[in-house]
Design a protein around this nucleic acid. Structure first.
Length: 490
RNA sequence: GGCAGGGUAGCUCAGUUGGUUAGAGCACAGGACUCAUAAGCCUGGGGUCACGAGUUCAAAUCUCGUCCCUGCUACCA
């Protein structure tokens, strides 16, 4: 019954971009949908703040690390707020509670932790070692960071991930640990079948001070990834808090495709080491391109989420990201596409439908809405879509209803019924329109909460209550931001 | 190289176990209407379903081959 949903926690090495926004929005839909079913929900997000890269970044801008992390974290908190994200928790890996509990987790994993020497090629950008073949293929330079790999030999603690490979495999294959979409499931199964090696989970303190101390060893700090994953437990108050006892395992964990391995191999291994059940579902979303180009600073096409919200509003942004970014695939954003979706679908189809219905009731019936039996639309496809995190399909289903309602209005022609003076029939038709809109609002609530609330406000009390302006006023031109963002960057 | 998934209307895609003239949205063209945010509704044009062969009464759908695209993974015995 209890429902626990998480996003991955963004690494605070740069400001939020639309990829972060996508993940926040998707997880938010799941949380809101669960609350709508009257389930007790904990929805957590937060920020991942340790590691050498953050320390370097802070040094670069001449700030104290903690202050830098504070500021960055604040930006993500701000993004969640701006997107109308309903998270119950916002955990930071620099929270005292997380740090303490992470050490408890480490101790509880002690039987699977041993000390060893790691020799390998390391990229400070990725904060990861790479295998020899990969390094060779990249000609000794990390393609992501344009930095040469450094040969490192160091004492590390290791986690016996290899021991758990068979059990992880079984959980994924059987579906007790479900991975969506299926293509990602196949992908990770392939990785696991080809063998999981034990992983290095600490770094010598002399090289890295910005991290959580390894219990009982002054000279080592936890590797940032290993520790960051623990947030899903520490946020609930593992090991003793009531929330932890009631809400673990997570119902859904939402992550991006780049961190599949961490969440579908390493994380399950850690949980098995702790003797805990695995999450029920891992939903893996794709990436967003801008005008079919990869987002990058050098191309100058990075779009701050706030720009979109400022230009079109929160729900328009949520709408585009949920419906026009495929839930099981990569997607593309452009101001032109957003503009078209906004005008055609939000303003013309939905907004205008609300408007014409309200206007007729006001002018024909002094705003009084009659009674109507609820519409008998089959919402199974909608529910199933949400169950499978197919947010795009879910909105398709809602829009079928919006279109259907517009057709109904044109077939019934309430304006003619009004002229004929059949007030009883008119009342029935208009009341039915309202029940349809209220159902649409209900379905929309997890996806576009603000819009749903407005529709419910207008029609929910038996009398049409006007709102200021219209739901989605048409926009004639794309905003200035469009020109800026679509200009070739330098 | 291996594994996986794709290549369907100008664009984005849907097409269940092979079965009637291959669908939707956007874009485009035309029409009837007027309650509404010059919105909505109706109609229409447009596809050798990547290519070649095969199985079948029948293939977008199954088999084999070829060419492209994407993702993961790998040259260690």
């Amino acid at each position: 019954m209890n429902y626990f949903v998480t996003t991955s926690i963004p690494y605070v090495n740069g400001p939020p971009h639309i990829g972060h926004a996508l993940e926040f929005i998707m997880a938010d839909v799941l949380a809101r949908a669960a609350r709508a079913e009257k389930k007790p929900v904990i929805f957590s997000t937060g920020t991942d703040e340790h590691g050498g890269k953050i320390a370097d970044k802070a040094a670069e801008v001449g700030k104290d690390v903690k202050i830098f992390a504070d500021e960055m974290s604040q930006q993500f908190r701000g993004l969640a707020k701006a997107l109308n994200i309903s998270n119950d928790r916002f955990i930071r890996t620099t929270d005292a509670g997380h740090e303490q509990r992470a050490q408890i987790i480490w101790k509880n994993l002690a039987k699977d932790i041993y000390k060893g020497t790691y020799v390998g090629l390391y990229c400070t950008g990725c904060e990861a070692f790479v295998t020899e073949p990969v390094a060779k293929e990249n000609k000794g330079t990390c393609p992501h960071h344009q930095k040469p790999y450094e040969k490192l030999e160091e004492e590390n603690y290791f986690f016996k991930l290899s021991v758990y490979a068979p059990e992880i495999l079984k959980a994924i294959e059987s579906g007790s640990f479900e991975i969506l979409p299926q293509s990602r499931k196949h992908e990770i199964l392939h990785v696991i079948k080809s063998g999981l090696e034990d992983i290095s989970i600490s770094r010598p303190k002399e090289k890295l001070t910005w991290g959580i101390a390894v219990p009982g060893d002054e000279n080592q700090v936890m590797y940032v990834w290993f520790e960051a994953l623990m947030n899903y437990l520490t946020v609930l108050g593992y090991p003793e808090h009531d929330d932890y006892l009631k809400f673990w395992p997570a119902n859904v964990q939402v992550v991006g495709k780049d961190i599949l391995r961490f969440h579908a191999a390493i994380w399950p291994g850690m949980l098995l080491g702790l003797g805990l059940p695995l999450p029920k579902k891992l939903y893996v979303h794709g990436f967003i391109t801008v005008n079919n180009q990869k987002m990058s600073k050098s191309l100058g096409n990075v779009i701050p989420p706030q720009d979109i919200i400022n230009a079109y509003g929160v729900d328009a942004m949520r709408y585009y990201f949920l419906r026009h970014i495929p839930a099981y695939d990569d997607g593309d954003f452009s101001w032109a596409k957003l503009h078209a979706a906004y005008n055609n679908e939000l303003a013309n189809e939905l907004g205008n439908c609300v408007q014409r219905t309200a206007a007729m009731i006001v002018s024909y019936q002094k705003g009084i809405i009659g009674d109507s039996p609820p519409p008998e639309h089959d919402i199974a496809a909608y529910s199933e879509a949400l169950e499978h995190c197919r947010f795009d399909r879910a909105l398709d289903e809602v829009w079928d209803q919006v279109r259907g309602l517009n057709q109904y209005i044109d077939e019934q022609k309430p304006w003619e019924i009004n002229k004929q003076g059949d007030s009883e029939h008119l009342r029935e038709v208009l009341a039915y329109q309202v029940s349809c809109l209220l159902q649409i609002a209900e379905l929309l609530a997890p996806l576009l909460p603000e819009t749903a609330t407005k529709i419910q406000y207008i029609f929910g009390e038996g009398v049409v209550r006007p709102i200021e302006g219209t739901l989605f006023p048409r926009k004639e031109h794309t905003p200035d931001a469009a020109n800026v963002s679509e200009a070739p960057g330098k």
